[in-house]
């Protein structure tokens, strides 16, 4: 069985008027199927309101499916007795780095998760040390998280999840509020965790450059899963992406425009080196 299996998931937000009558229904997630295996680096793309954050919250038993099922590590998330196992298996990092810090010292914050899990103090310290080293924040362990930069805070938040030894980390637009440097640091960190600690990464974003190295990309629009495939497969469909108001990486865009001007370049070029190589071949 795969680490995460989502089958025909439906989730609706029901708006009610003052008397409690149903006023309108917004289908946030509409019959979504998802299979993610252990160790994958998966990206979920989508415009605002495409349902990608709602989907993410299902993987961590924060929301429960209205219809369909979500299995995390073989456990049904809608079963109340699985809730803590599910939350420990898939950790979640949110968008705003300020709103997920609980401790007043970096160490304390990273230790919050393991404390909740009832782990012995000595082991908590081992885990805190390990996970702070994994995200490259060990030398800041005694500082106040409030005094760190956005990218550093976000890496502390990631360390807080890593300390819970999850199999999977779901990151819900972790770089949306960061400057370019913080963005690069966070992305480098999650790639490293994926590679070295073989933690499954589910990265939710609308920054296309971050997606290029993913194993698999899912694209969501209006609650539906509209595309899936490797980054190359996805980004070769420039027109379809533009239709649902999504961009492609700059290099891909450049290749696409050149192609339109009559330069015979292959579709779905992802990196600068690749483009250079293809252009040289044409000369």
């Amino acid at each position: 069985m795969n680490l995460i299996e989502v089958k025909k998931l439906i989730y609706e937000y029901i708006r009610r008027d003052k008397d409690g009558n149903v006023d309108g229904i917004t289908t946030a997630i509409d019959k979504v199927d998802l299979d993610i295996s252990q160790g994958d680096f998966v990206a979920i793309l989508g415009h605002n309101g495409s349902g990608k954050s709602t989907l993410a919250k299902h993987l961590n038993a924060i929301y429960f499916p209205e219809e369909g099922v979500v299995y995390v590590d073989g456990k049904d998330t809608s079963d109340p007795k699985n809730i803590w196992d599910v939350r420990q298996t898939t950790g979640m990092v949110f968008q705003n780095p300020d709103n997920q810090i609980i401790g007043s010292i970096v160490e304390e914050d990273v230790g919050f998760g393991p404390e909740n899990m009832g782990i012995a103090p000595e082991e908590i310290w081992d885990r805190v040390e390990e996970s702070l080293e994994a995200v490259g924040m060990y030398e800041h362990r005694e500082r106040s998280p409030r005094k760190l930069s956005g990218g550093q805070k976000q890496r502390v938040a990631i360390a807080g999840i890593v300390a819970m030894k999850p199999k999977c980390i779901v990151l819900d637009e972790p770089t949306a509020m960061l400057d370019p440097k913080g963005r690069a640091d966070v992305i480098r960190t999650i790639k490293k965790l994926n590679r070295e600690n073989s933690i499954t990464i589910i990265l939710i974003t609308h920054n296309m450059e971050e997606v290029v190295d993913a194993d698999k990309v899912y694209v969501m629009d209006k609650g539906r899963l509209v595309m899936q495939g490797s980054p190359r497969e996805i980004f070769s469909q420039v027109d379809e992406l533009k239709e649902i108001r999504l961009d492609v990486p700059q290099i891909t865009e450049l290749a696409y425009e050149l192609n339109k001007e009559g330069i015979p370049l292959p579709k779905g070029i992802l990196s600068r080196e690749e483009l250079v190589e293809e252009l040289c071949r044409l000369l």
Binding site: G118, P121, W125
Partner: peptide, 18 residues
């Protein structure tokens, strides 16, 4: 939400770092 997803469930069964 962040506390929920880090398995916070009140004081019972919680250990302390210090």
């Amino acid at each position: 939400l962040a506390m929920d997803s880090r398995c916070y469930r009140g004081g019972d069964g919680r250990t302390k770092m210090r």
